[in-house]
């Protein structure tokens, strides 16, 4: 058994955790926008899967990861609009329509994969992109600045999301619509338009989350590639109390503990593998027990809005 506080191990856990957190960050920030405007989208995982497949297929046939990313954005955005149509225009119960979207994405992505690809083939997607100079910094360089472009993007997204939500008119509209749609409506903010926008944005980010798996981190597609990550992402939105920086915190805690349990097994720490795998899920709840303040969800969350009702 190696020394646990070996630098290799520490760097390994940190850089592994940063990679693992990437898809959660995109998906959870996207979901944060939706929920802040009052819409719970449980279909994130399905959107991630569809986008993961389409971007994978694009790279497989055309070779360009950037084109793959673009396709993921398009597919994700379209699915977001579809979710909007179901839950905003048709006013369907949000939790259920999300489950429907999830099953649809889960099934269709696999169906398309079997029809057009068949057997998993490795592709070369986004490569690791060490940032000049910064990646040379001892210790930190390896952890933070020798990752794929999509990994950097996930972390840049956090302050951007915070800024949009808290410092722009659009963000104010989102929050108003999520807290009190009637009042926002009476002040001339279109509830429907705002929610369509946040769901489309959420879909796009879920799409990038899927692409970050299939064309950056894993470079492969398989049936149910996400294995429920979209649901964990939704959970992390609640962990973060609808605030981007706390969502980041939750994603990192979850992912670092996940990386830690992988390392513990690799180093031969005598712990049953199932118990080790459980750790991130247990610890995320435990951390929240000690830190959950009295954060209140957006008042109109999961409530459909119809003028004059």
């Amino acid at each position: 058994m190696q020394d646990f506080l070996d630098w290799t191990v520490v760097i390994g856990i940190l850089s592994s955790g940063i990679r693992l957190a990437t898809p959660y960050l995109y998906a959870a920030i996207g979901e944060t926008f939706g929920q802040r405007s009052g819409v719970l989208n449980l279909g994130v995982d399905g959107i991630m899967l569809l986008a993961a497949f389409s971007s994978y297929f694009t790279v497989l046939t055309l070779g360009s990861p950037w084109l793959g990313l673009l396709v993921a954005i398009l597919v994700g955005g379209l699915m977001g609009i579809a979710m909007g149509f179901i839950s905003i225009t048709l006013q369907a119960e949000q939790g259920i329509s999300g489950i429907g979207v999830y099953l649809f994405g889960l099934g269709l992505s696999d169906l398309l994969f079997q029809k057009f690809v068949g057997t998993a083939k490795a592709i070369s997607g986004f490569k690791e992109f060490p940032i000049p100079l910064l990646s040379k910094i001892p210790f930190f360089g390896d952890i933070f600045f020798s990752q794929s472009v999509l990994v950097y993007g996930a972390y840049l997204l956090i302050p951007l999301a915070w800024f949009i939500l808290n410092k722009t008119t659009f963000g104010l509209n989102i929050r108003a619509v999520g807290e009190n749609p009637e009042a926002a409506d009476s002040l001339g903010v279109s509830v429907q338009k705002t929610r369509y926008l946040t769901l489309t944005l959420g879909g796009i980010l879920a799409g990038i989350a899927g692409a970050s798996l299939s064309i950056a981190l894993l470079n492969v597609f398989q049936q149910n590639l996400t294995n429920g990550m979209g649901f964990i992402a939704v959970a992390l939105v609640y962990f973060g109390g609808w605030r981007p920086f706390y969502v980041l915190l939750g994603s990192l805690i979850f992912s670092f503990v996940n990386a830690l349990q992988v390392w513990m097994q690799v180093l031969g720490v005598p712990i049953p593998s199932d118990i080790a795998v459980m750790m991130p899920y247990v610890l995320t709840i435990v951390v929240l027990i000690f830190s959950a303040g009295r954060v209140r969800p957006p008042a109109a969350l999961t409530k459909t809005y119809e003028r004059g009702s």
Binding site: A92, G100, F104, G107, L111, Q223
Partner: peptide, 25 residues
Amino acid sequence: VPAALVITLNGLIVIFVVSSELWRR
């Protein structure tokens, strides 16, 4: 047909049924 089709169909049914609520209301 692949099992995936059954799952897709399951999803479509859920979406269509839950959306039909609007007309009932």
